[in-house]
Nucleic acid binder design. Sequence first.
DNA 1: GTGCATTATATTGATATCAACGTATTTGCA
DNA 2: TGCAAATACGTTGATATCAATATAATGCAC
Lengths: 156, 156
Amino acid sequence: MSKSSELTGGPTPEPTFATTREVRDTCLCLFVQRTARALARRFDAALRPLDLTNGQFSLLMSLNRPQPPALGEVAELLAMDRTTLTANLKPLERRGLVAVERGRDDRRRRHLRLTAAGHALLGEAVPIWRREHAALEDLLSGGEAARLRAELVALS
Amino acid sequence: MSKSSELTGGPTPEPTFATTREVRDTCLCLFVQRTARALARRFDAALRPLDLTNGQFSLLMSLNRPQPPALGEVAELLAMDRTTLTANLKPLERRGLVAVERGRDDRRRRHLRLTAAGHALLGEAVPIWRREHAALEDLLSGGEAARLRAELVALS
DNA sequence: GTGCATTATATTGATATCAACGTATTTGCA
DNA sequence: TGCAAATACGTTGATATCAATATAATGCAC
């Protein structure tokens, strides 16, 4: 059936150019990474006047809630490694946008609280996000955005 | 109409929790970054026996073609900054998987060539990619993968 | 063929990402 | 109670990402 033995488990053959085209044209991981880079650049550029990256914006936004969440909860919400979140917090702490405080009940936990400055900066970022996101949705036809979100969540 | 003045351009109000929910539930950039992290972890784990990351796999694969492409072409194909690609090449060059050679016609160009070792390693990676990617497509219903790819490209 | 804009790439500095490993605290069980 | 497993988090080292800036080669106008 197949001219290739790539599936037989024998001595691995070297991939043909046809295999490369197949991977390049179908690999969902590659497609998502590519779009992730493009969107990151786009939102980074839009938020540059506030000296915020897209990731910092999403992180600050996830902290804007009645009760300061623990680090682990936020990491899970962002589908991010805990240690990555620890690293990402450092520049925000330095700038006084986020404060970290030990849990009173459970002293292992570290709760992340948005400071007044962080809250205010987030307020400036929201209109930028609205503008940029509206432009983004214009690239998709009606209803596609919702479907895209559902598909992305299915892969997460 | 709107109880919020976030769109009026006046003194920026601080974002409400409702705004946070809106961003969290709709931001395509956030959704894509989240899925990008999850898929990267997944393919990184699958390729770990070969000591390859998902990005290194995609990069090696993009070099598997008749004529060695120039750095800039590859960067555009991967929607990646040129300087990022320069950095990503270093570990692959160290391991002897990729060779960089100056263009003969245009000596500014640097052509990226897969070595025999790189080609062989890529051969070992293909079955792993096939297995992992098949598992991934199972998470989506029929035809969704193609639609997802098209939507991701529209945003790139 | 000179000179200048353009093109292709490298370097530096900052943040982002995760695995491997280590520490402190809590929980549950004997 | 005492102690081991589980939980929450940090640190280190490696790669990934991009903006800003610099260098070198090409090409074009004149």
